[in-house]
Design a protein around this nucleic acid. Structure first.
Lengths: 131, 131
DNA sequence: CGGAATCCAAGATGATACTG
DNA sequence: CAGTATCATCTTGGATTCCG
């Protein structure tokens, strides 16, 4: 039911190496959500515990309401985030990680930590290229 | 979450939690390159060893020449990838990871592996939402 | 073969205004 | 407070063409 791809390498070859290498694998979508600019940062912040919408927005520098809401919805749809809406006025909504979410978030944070920790080495590469 | 600091959230607060949370931190750019759709996959493939341009293109399903070249250049600029151009006809260019590149690639692959391994659990979340 | 350059469609993002 | 709706903009991504 899938259209053949006009590439030398077969789909089987791609899958053997890893599902992510296959063009139309759903894992690409999950990867997209998880590694999205605001999705990643949301996961990392939520690893510290439950947060309200405005708290997340404050902690994640530069994110707009729209993008934050959009990112959170995508991650909620993937089962990474639990959204708990309290029926009060004014509205009170709490976001937290599901057990599944904690697992990805840990992976994501490790990558984030590596970058923060090794940023100087990367910047050094840029400097040397300029020289 | 419960800071005794009177200020809601300063840049200092952001940096204390992590440079990635700060809007204008260069780490955001590095993160962008590393987690970009084709950048991630390139790093993972190169973890298997040196590859030529066309080899990378073949292994990474669905990538265009333009985007692959662009992604590789960004990662080369960050010092993650080494580009070796052999002066022959027809051209022969080899891409490999630098020691720094190997380190990020490992982090990236771990995230990728997790997603591939737990894809079924994620898809299950989607199913339950539909029900 | 390994790109660079160009054009264009599509999607991501942001500011603003509005609502329950 | 926690969003949604809308519009304008900016960036991505792909297809095509050309070159050393």
């Amino acid at each position: 039911m899938k259209p053949k791809i006009p590439v030398p390498e077969t789909l089987t070859d791609q899958l053997r190496r890893g599902a992510l290498m296959a063009t139309e694998c759903p894992s690409r979508d999950v990867l997209k959500h998880v590694t999205s600019r605001w999705g990643m940062l949301s996961l990392i912040v939520l690893l510290d515990g439950t947060h309200r919408f405005s708290e997340l927005r404050r902690k994640i520098g530069g994110v707009s309401e729209k993008m934050l809401a959009q990112s959170l919805q995508a991650l909620e749809g993937d089962g990474f985030i639990l959204r708990k809406s309290l029926p009060v006025v004014p509205p009170h909504v709490e976001y937290s990680l599901t057990p599944l979410g904690v697992e990805v978030a840990v992976q994501v944070r490790q990558l984030g930590d590596w970058i923060e920790l090794n940023l100087s080495r990367v910047l050094q590469a840029h400097v040397q290229r300029a020289a």
